[in-house]
């Protein structure tokens, strides 16, 4: 399955709050960062949690966020970062 984004692409995490087994941390929703690497295609935990093992796999990315993009009052140098694993359906091209 073709990956929608490439390493280096600017992406934003969907600002969505669906119920279920969601592995997208709340603190990253709505934030923009840069694809650090593509991890491969993996079972989608939102489907696996309900026993749907045949659901299509999702491309998993590691996205690097500036700490200052997540916490406006971050207490540290501007270069500090967090890398988070995110499934493709949670990402969209960054508009900023």
């Amino acid at each position: 399955m073709a990956a929608r984004f490439a390493a280096g692409d600017r992406v934003a995490v969907r600002r969505a709050f669906p119920p279920g087994h969601i592995r997208t941390p709340w603190y990253a929703r709505g934030a923009a960062g840069e694809v650090e690497r593509i991890c491969g295609a993996f079972g989608n935990p939102e489907e696996l949690a309900f026993g749907r093992r045949d659901a299509p796999k999702q491309t998993l990315y590691r996205v690097r966020f500036a700490q200052t993009a997540l916490w406006p009052d971050y207490d540290g140098p501007p270069g500090d970062t967090i890398d988070i694993e995110l499934y493709e359906h949670w990402l969209e091209p960054a508009t900023e």
Partner: peptide, 15 residues
């Protein structure tokens, strides 16, 4: 030190 970047890695999925 402030001239060293701190990089946090959140293991949210399969890694």
């Amino acid at each position: 030190p402030d001239d060293v970047t701190v990089r946090v890695h959140d293991s949210t999925a399969d890694m």
